[in-house]
């Protein structure tokens, strides 16, 4: 059994519970044990780096220090926002020893060496994909719009994941499931992100563009790997629909849910029943 470090992040305990459920179900199905970073905290998200630089580094740094203390060589971070914050923090601290010292003092913990931080797509590529074909029972035979969002690919210099424009990894994974990924231009357009609560009007506008474009190009589902994107595209759908004055009902799935569905996991295991936009099997 493969044992890997795991940082769920706050939203996977709340609004994105189904993401957590589908990740855990996949892990069980593929014989992987995901071990949580002990006593983890919030990464600080957008709020921290908007308001305070040291805080925005110290919160993720504490998570990294906790992982290191637990002897983890790599951690799986399904939330794209957490993934980006952790990666950027690790990069900045190991580039700048003075800053690192400052942050270590603030959190009263030390960081000795960088660890591998994997997003969910990298996790799938490395640990699921090699055994995927044998587990597929029901091909995901639909046109899908793979939506990467911002934080999986940017900042590209640091994350070095896929290519910056028109990324392909999720598309290739979906092809493996039997799906037909559409060619569309908004793979990395912003959904409005952290403005979800404070400026729902803008989120409706930005996310609306994405939902509309995906629908018009024939997508029967939007595939994401980020709880924030999912929240904006799914939970905010009524706001989107009233902004666009049209009912769009294209469902939004986490990539782990799509894989789970193709591998025959039930609704409880994938958590698709928790979506506000209904998913038809």
């Amino acid at each position: 059994m493969t044992k890997l470090g795991f940082y769920p992040g706050c939203s996977l305990e709340g609004t994105a519970r189904e993401y957590n459920e589908s990740v855990m179900s996949l892990a069980t199905l593929f014989d992987i044990q995901l071990e949580q970073v002990p006593d983890w905290n919030c990464c600080g998200a957008t709020a921290a780096h908007n308001l305070n630089k040291i805080l925005s580094l110290s919160l993720p740094a504490r998570i990294l220090a906790q992982a290191e203390k637990a002897g983890m060589k790599e951690i799986i971070v399904p939330c794209a926002a957490c993934y980006s914050r952790l990666s950027v923090t690790q990069h900045e601290l190991f580039e700048n020893s003075e800053l690192k010292k400052q942050v270590e003092e603030v959190m009263d913990m030390t960081l000795s060496s960088p660890i591998r931080i994997l997003n969910v797509v990298q996790f799938i590529q490395e640990f699921i994909l090699p055994h995927l074909s044998e587990k597929i029972v029901k091909p995901f035979d639909k046109e899908v719009a793979c939506y990467y969002g911002c934080l999986l690919v940017r900042p590209h210099d640091i994350l070095q994941f896929d290519r910056l424009e028109d990324p392909q990894t999720i598309d290739r994974i979906m092809e493996q499931l039997g799906a037909k990924p559409i060619d569309w231009p908004f793979k990395t357009e912003c959904c409005g992100a952290g403005l979800s609560v404070s400026r729902t009007d803008l989120v409706a506008k930005l996310s609306g563009k994405i939902v509309k474009e995906a629908t018009e190009r024939g997508a029967k589902a939007i595939i994401t790997a980020c709880p924030m994107c999912h929240a904006n595209l799914d939970m905010r759908r009524s706001a989107i629909n009233s902004y666009l004055a049209k009912k769009y009902d294209v469902p939004v799935l986490y990539i782990t849910q799509a894989i789970g569905m193709a591998c025959g996991l039930n609704n409880k295991q994938t958590g698709i029943y928790r979506h506000l936009v209904k998913v038809n099997n």
Binding site: C150, L151, R154, E189, C190, L195, L202
Partner: peptide
């Protein structure tokens, strides 16, 4: 400065 969603499209 507050509307900026830190999507990083500009720097990329």
């Amino acid at each position: 400065i507050w509307l900026c969603a830190s999507c990083e499209m500009c720097i990329s």
